[in-house]
Every structure is written in structure tokens, then in C-alpha cells.
Design a protein around this nucleic acid. Sequence first.
DNA 1: GGCATCTCCTTGAAACTTGAACAAGTCGGG
DNA 2: CCCGACTTGTTCAAGTTTCAAGGAGATGCC
Lengths: 172, 172
Amino acid sequence: MGYMNTATDPAGRHRWLTDEEQRVWRAYLHATYLLEDHLDRQLQRDAGMPHIYYGLLVGLAEAPRRRLRMTELAMKAKITRSRLSHAIARLEKNGWVRREDCPSDKRGQFAVLTDEGAEVLRRTAPGHVAAVRQALFERLTPEQQKTLGEIMEIVAEGLQPNEAGADLPWLR
Amino acid sequence: MGYMNTATDPAGRHRWLTDEEQRVWRAYLHATYLLEDHLDRQLQRDAGMPHIYYGLLVGLAEAPRRRLRMTELAMKAKITRSRLSHAIARLEKNGWVRREDCPSDKRGQFAVLTDEGAEVLRRTAPGHVAAVRQALFERLTPEQQKTLGEIMEIVAEGLQPNEAGADLPWLR
DNA sequence: GGCATCTCCTTGAAACTTGAACAAGTCGGG
DNA sequence: CCCGACTTGTTCAAGTTTCAAGGAGATGCC
């Protein structure tokens, strides 16, 4: 009992994970926890925000006029609109982001990266990239990197809610 | 600017990620977000608790007398003691876990899995395992599974705070 | 136009996490 | 025995996330 067991498929009963699968799964959980935790702390310390907020600024920085509609940004970051509202409120309070009304749709709002926000990014991006590089890429062979990419694309594809037709509430 | 750029190492300046590294990194972020989200919802729906709380019950179920000292459990789950205190309080309210004083150390507390807790696990584990299997293992070749395990072990090892000597504050 | 319906985003409350601070207990000298 | 240093686990406050609900504007159809 517990997470899973060693047995495979005893004629109709539950299929647990094999020992090997279990090893892989636990390694996955362990590593992804540690990495997320590591990056969250790194960014909290150096940029004063959690990883996902940083990702929002990056999303804006990459957008045409440093701006994106709330829903677009939520989709890009794969979070709910609600969560984004709260997050942007916080970033706005920090002065990294500003809200602007959408002229063509009065319901709409743009989240706009401010100069200050861009500056924070400029200042903290190198450290963040270094952290990612050091925690991940420097430790893997090119082979492993390639396989990791393939695996992650497969997994993401399998979980992708939308799939040409099944429009998703970006989310939930 | 932003997350990273395509340039490599222009004589002393910041090393960004190559295009390929960037692809891998974004795929990683995307997939791990989706998977964690997926499992969290699956467990919230079927077991009424988030993934990490489920992991705590599993940890207890695997322990000798279904019990573990708070600090041990925190280590096993790789979370802070503070977070564990809150979590156990909640699980206790649900009746899945009970606290017991440690006889040998009056500061100590055991978290003990109750029969109810064990029952919840028994009832929900198959669904959870199925979710993991379906989202991950069924989509990967044996080769990929093997490589994934290797990669995750490497990454975890690199982030492991302790390393024979550097005792860690379980955590932080 | 009138009206049902959908979309955009926000809000509020509850749940969860974090970090610092803390009471209580243990431990190892002196 | 006593005291300083450390450990154990909790608590508080602040921050974040979730979920359900809702206001306001757009849309389409009659």
C-alpha cells in the first residue's frame, strides 16, 4: 500500500508501478521539487518575486509593445485568470507592471511591463539563467538534454487540455 | 532580454541559453507545470487533498508503525517543519492522522497514520497510480524512462543541500 | 431594440506556504 | 548542578493560490 507497489497486473487488479518505474517516479518528484524550490528561492532573493511572477514579466518583455491582454498572458503562463489578476495586482504595486484599458474592448485590460519592470529583468535575468544552467544543463550530456526535451514535449502533449477543438478555459 | 537569449558566451558577458537549451527548458517548465497541476487536481477531486498531503500519508504508511517524528517526515517529504505542522494540523482535522507525544524526547511528536487515513490511501492510491501511469509511463519508451530516471537523479544530486557533512536544516 | 448568452476580468473568502520568532526540552561542558 | 548552545515543533503574520461568484461589456438572434 502507499504510493504504489511492485506488483504488475495480477489478473484484473490494480496495476501498480514496477520497482523501476517507482524509482523513476520518485526521482522525478524529488528532482522537480528541489529544482523548483531552488529557483524560487534564487528569484525571491535576487528579484524579490516567485518564479512564476518572473515568468510573467518575461512574457510581457517578449510581447510586441511589452504588453499583453490579461487572458493572453494567462494562457501564455498557463495559469487561471484569477491567479493572474492577483499576481498583476502585486506586480503593479511593485511598479514592475502597469494596467491599461483596451480601447477596442472595454472589458479588456492590458498588462504592460514598465521601464522599472524591464530594468528588474535586465538586472536579474543573468543570475536566473546561470542558476538554470548550473542546476540543469551543466550536469547533462547533450544526449540527455535532447532526450529530456523529447520527454517533456511528449508529457506536455499528453496533458494538453486543448487539442484542436477542445478549447480550454486557460484555465480551468 | 527576458528569460534567456540565443547568444552563447561573447567574451566575458553573460552566458544565455542556446536556442536548443531554451526549447528544452521551456518544455520542461511546461510539462512539469501541467503534470503537477494534473495530479493535484486528480487528488483534490478523488482524495480531497493536494498532492503533497497525499505524499505525507504515503510517507507514514511506509514507516514502521505507521508513524514518524515530525522532523523525519519533513525530511522525507522535503518540506519545512513549519509547513508540515500546518499540514498535519489539517490532516488531523480530517482524521487521517493523529499526533502522539514521543516518550523519549518530550519535545518530540509523532505523526501517526490512523485507520481512516490508511483507508483513504487504500481507496485512492489506485486512481493516483493510474493517473501517473497514464500521464507519464504509458507515453514513454523504456529507453526514455531509463534516461528520465538518470537525468532526475543527476539533477537532484546536484541540488542536494547535504552531501556527507553539510548537514541540512530540513529544511532551509 | 430587446434579450439571452458568452467573454473579460475582478473580487472575496478559504486554503495553503513561507519565514521569522518563540517556548520548551536536550545536551555538553565546566 | 548550571549555563550556553542547539533542537523540536508550533505560532504568527504576510504572501500566494484556489474556487465560486459577480459586474460589465460584447455578441447574436429575433
